[in-house]
Amino acid sequence: MAQIVHKYTLLILLSVLIMHSLFTSVHSRKFQEKKPCKRFTLYFHDILFNGTNLANATAATAVNRTQLGNYKHGMLVVFDDPMTKQNNLLTPPVARAQGFYFYDTKDAYNAWFAYTLIFNSTEHKGTLNIMGADLMGEEMRDLSVVGGTGDFFMTRGIATFRTDGQPDAFYFRVKMDIKLYECY
């Protein structure tokens, strides 16, 4: 009986040591940055409706700001914005960005975005879904690419934002460097 207990104890101890060595070897590997499987740059043009620009507006306030702070806290904007390859608004769009953003802090200009890039051109067909915090005080900020369809089926990656122009309170342009790391 004692011999059976020693065998089982030895077997359990050996199993624990093997599991420990497998676990530490898997998790002790150095992080290796992957290269993107697709990468491209687009410009996001947002023209907020101001009461007089109905023909040109691509975005509208759906919920007005609250009285908490001076940074548009609580304001919700819904948009259908053109995406171009150059930073000129008059260049032909290669996609549409459809979604919303809302200002989510009361002590700084920060927004949270959720939108879909809709491609329907000879170069790309399908969608990319992007969401995340736009910390506007930072020069560059990353939002997550959380999926897609068509040419971008189930893709994952990063959309790096950089404000490229804001001539007034009703128009802004963002340069988006999109890097996809999972492409099927």
Rank of each mutant, 00 (worst) to 15 (best):
F102T: 06
V94G: 05
L89T: 01
D107N: 14
M131I: 02
G99M: 09
K85G: 13
Y103F: 14
H124G: 00
Q98N: 03
A111L: 08
K85C: 02
D107L: 05
N88G: 06
Y115M: 11
S121H: 00
I118Q: 07
L117S: 04
G132P: 12
W112T: 12
N129H: 15
N110P: 00
E123I: 07
W112E: 06
L90V: 12
I130G: 01
Y115P: 01
P92N: 05
K106D: 12
L89F: 15
M83E: 06
F113T: 08
G126W: 09
A97Y: 10
N120H: 12
R96H: 12
M131N: 08
T91S: 15
F119T: 00
K106H: 11
V94T: 13
Y101G: 09
A97V: 02
Y115F: 15
E123M: 03
F119P: 04
H124S: 02
W112S: 11
M131P: 01
G126C: 00
D104T: 08
T84A: 04
V94M: 11
P93W: 04
A114N: 10
T91D: 15
Y109F: 13
N87E: 10
P92Y: 01
N120T: 03
P82N: 06
H124R: 03
L90K: 09
G132V: 06
L128S: 10
P93N: 09
K125G: 09
T84E: 00
A111D: 09
P93L: 01
N120M: 03
K106E: 10
L89Y: 15
W112I: 10
P92V: 00
T91W: 10
Y101V: 05
A108D: 13
A108L: 07
P92T: 00
A111V: 11
P92C: 02
F102Y: 14
K125F: 13
M83K: 02
Q86A: 07
L90C: 04
T122H: 10
M131Q: 08
P82K: 05
T122A: 09
T116C: 04
I118K: 05
R96S: 06
N110K: 10
S121E: 12
T116Q: 09
N88E: 13
A108H: 08
D107W: 07
K85F: 15
Q98C: 01
G132W: 11
I130E: 13
Y103G: 05
